[in-house]
Design a binder for these strands. Structure first.
Lengths: 142, 142
DNA sequence: CTAAGCGTTGCCGCCGACGTCAAGGCAAGG
DNA sequence: CCTTGCCTTGACGTCGGCGGCAACGCTTAG
């Protein structure tokens, strides 16, 4: 199998495969004409890389999985180094999710406050004596 | 106030301030010697930008807040354009958090499966007759 | 023979928010 | 005068994961 076919079967591009090779992740044999040659095991390696990439793993983080497969294990995560990457990633994900939730709450609070402030201003301008609460989600005085 | 003092009071660097100026976010008056000159209102603008940046807003997303302040409003989010940015950001945050939670679950599942597989292999090798469950978090047989 | 369609290497471009020089000007203290 | 420390502009570097182009070689079909 040549680079174009492998790329297509893995749903990626030849540029990506050459990039992986330049990083030492997916070395290729060469045919007599200089063309890269791949087999089904390489496809398996590549799919492992792509799956982890889709999860948001950096390329370097996929290396233990690839080496694990090349060591003959049927699964890329059948090695301690791969499990360590999983665990570290879980920690990072938890931390990131917590942080994003915190930001989400703060932004949500700012939005609510700003909407209240604008509502009060509008009401004071319209009815200086008695401001009525307005549902901002509707956007009109229905 | 010159650029160094403003940077320090806002907890950032002069490079950052010049970058903001190059983006048209924080224009500066110039003294007779060519030095940039800032006042307290500029500090307020800058703090608004920094707060949003800390929330993960892109620079361009802070522009409505800055323009709102420069239009004379006491708060950068006292304008509809700012509220629109808040709302869009909330949507992005929700989507991102959901996605990360999904990834977290999948990675967690992979880790659990891989740990089970390794435990089974170890047990089979050691005690072919009766595999005992081992706590992977402890790491030893104590 | 020729053209199409693969392959090869190499290098620059991109995105965002700056960091890091380089080379020089200006101000203030001893 | 000299040094120190601030300021100026301009330009290149960073990080990750490729995209895209140039300029060339191989192969195969018509």
């Amino acid at each position: 199998m040549r680079i174009g076919e492998l790329a297509e079967r893995a749903g990626t591009t030849t540029r990506t495969l050459r990039y992986y090779e330049s990083r030492g992740l997916l070395p290729a044999r060469r045919g007599s004409n200089g063309y890269r040659t791949y087999d089904e095991d390489d496809l398996k390696l590549l799919r492992q890389i792509r799956t982890l990439q889709d999860f948001g793993f950096e390329l370097e983080e996929t290396r233990p999985f690839v080496e694990c497969l090349r060591a003959g294990h049927p699964q890329g995560d059948a090695c301690p180094a791969s499990l360590a990457v999983y665990r570290r990633k879980l920690g990072e994900l938890d931390a990131l999710i917590d942080e994003l939730r915190s930001v989400r709450e703060q932004v949500g609070g700012q939005l609510a406050r700003a909407e209240r402030a604008m509502g009060e201003l509008a009401s004071e301008a319209a009815v200086p004596g008695g401001p009525e609460p307005v549902c901002e989600l509707e956007g009109r005085t229905g």
